[in-house]
């Protein structure tokens, strides 16, 4: 519990530093477009229940659904590909060809095919998360020590049992790391896709405030988006601690 307190204290200190820096920057720039933290936070509190919470809810749902679907599809596929030289021979070139393609460029296509609601956004973020996890899972499952696999097989384990007891747990920490890293990308793409189409979500809210020249409202939206990122990241951290308890020993 002490660790939690220390963590909260860390967040409080960091927040304070950021707020002071923000205030100084806003004073230095002296522009309407960069209001200080006081008006922004005032608007954040004023609009919290009426506007921010609903938009944040929609954004959060889009991003969480995408990450869950992306990880759920990519993890088993990546692990199987990495463990089987024969399947890998087919899939690896496919992955190498498609991984570097920036998936955002498919947003227009997805908008045409799937409309302007939740679907194209979720599809796009899922696609991005999917590839990041796929590559990570493949690498992780290739790096598993042979001796662990041999030992478990010598106990009479079937292929499936080797997967369940060795391959999956061995890869989990890497998968979690990849997930945490992809929250940043996922939220960036979420913002982009919400500004392009639709009338819901934090991306829409921020751009809408911007077009109304309501800069302190815009920053209230930016704060909400930042918080969404922090919460997702922390949730993944907590989940990892729960699921991968052994990685915490001896630290």
């Amino acid at each position: 519990m002490n660790a939690w307190l220390r963590r909260l204290g860390g967040y409080a200190a960091a927040t304070l530093i950021l707020l002071v820096g923000w205030e100084l920057l806003s004073l230095a720039v002296g522009s309407q477009a960069l209001p200080g933290p006081v008006p922004a936070l005032t608007d954040f509190a004023r609009l919290f229940f009426s506007d921010l919470l609903p938009h944040t809810g929609i954004s959060a749902w889009r991003v969480v659904a995408s990450m869950v679907i992306g990880a759920a599809l990519a993890t088993p596929l990546g692990l199987v590909v990495g463990r089987s030289p024969r399947i890998d021979a087919v899939f690896a070139p496919l992955i190498f060809l498609t991984y570097p393609v920036p998936k955002v460029v498919f947003l227009p296509v997805l908008l045409v095919l799937l409309g302007i609601g939740n679907l194209p956004k979720i599809a796009l973020i899922t696609l991005i998360v999917f590839f990041q996890i796929l590559v990570t899972a493949r690498d992780a499952s290739r790096g598993i020590p042979t001796s662990a696999v041999l030992s478990v097989r010598s106990l009479g384990a079937t292929r499936w049992q080797v997967f369940r007891h060795v391959v999956v747990p061995a890869a989990l920490p890497d998968i979690f790391t990849a997930l945490r890293i992809s929250t940043g990308t996922a939220i960036a793409v979420l913002f982009f896709s919400e500004t392009v189409a639709g009338s819901e979500g934090l991306g829409y809210y921020i751009i809408d405030a911007w077009s109304r020249i309501a800069y302190s409202e815009m920053f209230a939206g930016i704060i909400a988006m930042a918080l969404l990122g922090v919460v997702l990241y922390e949730l993944l951290e907590v989940a990892e601690g729960r699921v991968c308890r052994w990685t915490r020993v001896g630290r």
């Binding site: 001796s147 662990a148 041999l150 030992s151 478990v152 106990l155 007891h165 747990p169 991968c244 052994w246």
Partner: peptide, 17 residues
Amino acid sequence: PRRRTALILQDFGLLPW
């Protein structure tokens, strides 16, 4: 693999997780 044969490798083959 036979039921009552035990194999112990140099790094013991333990699963850290």
